[in-house]
Write a protein that binds this DNA or RNA. Structure first.
Lengths: 335, 335
DNA sequence: CTGAAAGCGCTAACAC
DNA sequence: GTGTTAGCGCTTTCAG
């Protein structure tokens, strides 16, 4: 193994000069820098991670906590992971993967052992057991998702409020005057729903702004729930022509249920959703949807974390603007 | 930060004694061990990873190289990753996630920087650019998948030969006498196909053993390819009643194509597949299939790697026995 | 602008 | 069975 002293000898300088020439942490004359760089190339020197990460120093590793709970959407999580690794590499960091169900233990270990300089926490719940440690712990962190109390934390998430508005704006622009939101199951609103509630707010306020008639219905999953909610909507809102769905597994059953009531999508009913892109694209009718920008969330989280590590101040919460992708499920009213 | 010397002082012993008491690398008297453990608990000591991983020593980190090529099956890869992390934790190791397309660079960096003690390489191609580095490099490795030349490497994979046999055995037991294998697209046989070819061998030899009439057809993907192959099979093998599919995306289109030719699954045609479990389970007719045991592959890879790190000899190649899960797509002939 | 030297926290020879 | 001590490779004071 070629070490920094070898490079130093070869370049005819001291080890510290090599270190500084490579890190740029203090000015080095051009001539010296060039000789160092030449020596590095000739000897094939690579700085040893373990040496650099001597206790108390930086390891240049970010931890990524991905609790593998049931009910998470695997491709979305994977996209997070890939984008985090890619972005981290761009900042010369590597990524340690943590999957323990009870993230507390894992985070504690990583923090204590100094295995990582910072941590990105995904799948954040409203009341997340990991929050106290993140607030008080020594490990800088960025959360993907929003807990109930984001004070003292750095969070990144899709702007679900704007997403709700965007769906309604789109429907309004197509001429729809009566719209309904079919939401997530009630327990989602309890367990992990900063975002579900924000979506409802956006939906409602946009509907009011456009002077639309609107209704909001949480809804369970499965064909039966779909049929029940479809019948109820048709009964209570006979003039309904626009639906926003925030409930991935319900998408197909709901389209099916409307079909059985004689309502075609998008002929009789325009339908938009907030869900992962693959789900929207592979529904029985491809659905116009706001998709969670997994890649951008991961990238953004890394940027924030790197800035935090450099001592810079970062915004408490970053909400990414939603983008709506038009597919086959929406059409002008009466078209 | 509480360090090993603090614990030593508190316990009234030397730092090295604490180290040995915790690692068990040399015998310590019961009394001393107990005092050390007490001190550790009272002070909340956790051994510092960076210190332990001093240059030349072990970092207790395994790298997991997961090239995110297009065409890989995301849930399967994710299952690998989760099982690798879980198994690694059971051996007190953490996992560094590498995703770079060109894995060579990443592996080189990790090796040189000593960021990891060993590496698990997934999605191994027949002629993989990473192989030379793995053969000669200083980083112990285990491959998930089989390259063309496994000499000098440690590989784990599903026993695709046995998988092919198992499918045929199953069909033969149900009374089917004429069987066909619908394989992967021809380019798969070129690019990454130790396993595709081994499957063909197993299929053919089992068919011969049972004295079945058999045929093998590589096949592209998409509805058109499905229709073409279905028509051809019906024409060339009118007595065909058993089909083995080794081509995930073709599963649904093929069932559809057979249906349009008047052949019902499993009424007229029994169909088995070798594919990921979720694909088999969510096909339009749930398919009896041999599934790639992602979790077990990951776990096994970690076990092998840990044994390698401890200096033990490990088998060059480990082939996991296939297991067939019966679903709705197979039935006795003429039932 | 550059060197010399002091450790970081831990483990592993080497002593006793 | 336990203590002492010398580093690992690097970064970073502290001195020129």
């Amino acid at each position: 193994m070629v070490k920094i002293t070898d490079v130093a000898r070869r370049a005819g300088v001291s080890p510290s000069t090599v270190s500084y020439a490579l890190s740029g942490k203090r000015p080095i004359s051009d001539a010296t820098r060039r000789r160092v760089q030449a020596a590095v190339r000739e000897l094939g020197y690579r700085t040893d991670g373990a040496g650099r990460a001597a206790p108390g120093r930086r390891s240049r590793v970010l931890a990524l906590a991905v609790p593998m709970r049931s009910g998470i959407h695997v491709p979305v999580v994977t996209q997070f992971a890939v984008s985090v690794v890619t972005a981290a590499r761009a900042h010369d960091h590597d990524v340690l993967l943590l999957t323990e169900g009870e993230g507390e233990e894992g985070l504690g270990r990583v923090a204590a052992a100094g295995l990582a300089d910072a941590v990105i926490v995904t799948d954040v719940q409203l009341q997340d057991p990991r929050l106290p440690m993140l607030r008080s712990g020594p490990l800088p962190s960025v959360l993907i998702g929003m807990p109930a109390e984001p004070d003292g934390l750095t969070c990144v998430d899709l702007d679900f409020r704007a997403a709700g508005e965007l769906c309604v704006d789109h429907l309004a622009r197509l001429g729809h005057r009566v719209v309904a939101l079919v939401g997530s199951p009630p327990d989602v609103y309890v367990r992990r729903t900063a975002f579900a509630r924000r979506l409802v707010e956006g939906f409602t306020s946009a509907a009011d702004r456009h002077r639309l008639t609107s209704a909001v219905h949480p809804c369970g999953t499965g064909p039966d729930a779909a049929r029940a909610i479809a019948e109820r909507l048709v009964r209570e809102l006979p003039a309904l022509t626009g639906v926003v769905v925030h409930n991935e597994p319900l998408l197909d059953p709901l389209i099916e249920a409307f079909g059985q009531l004689g309502l075609r999508v998008p002929g009789d009913l325009s339908l938009t959703a907030v869900c992962p892109a693959p789900v929207a694209a592979s529904a029985r009718v491809p659905v116009t949807a706001v998709t969670v920008p997994s890649t951008e969330l991961g990238t953004r989280a890394v940027h924030l974390l790197v800035r935090k590590l450099s001592g810079a101040a970062v915004p408490r919460t970053t909400l990414l603007p939603p983008r709506l992708t038009e597919r086959a499920s929406t059409a002008p009213r009466g078209a």
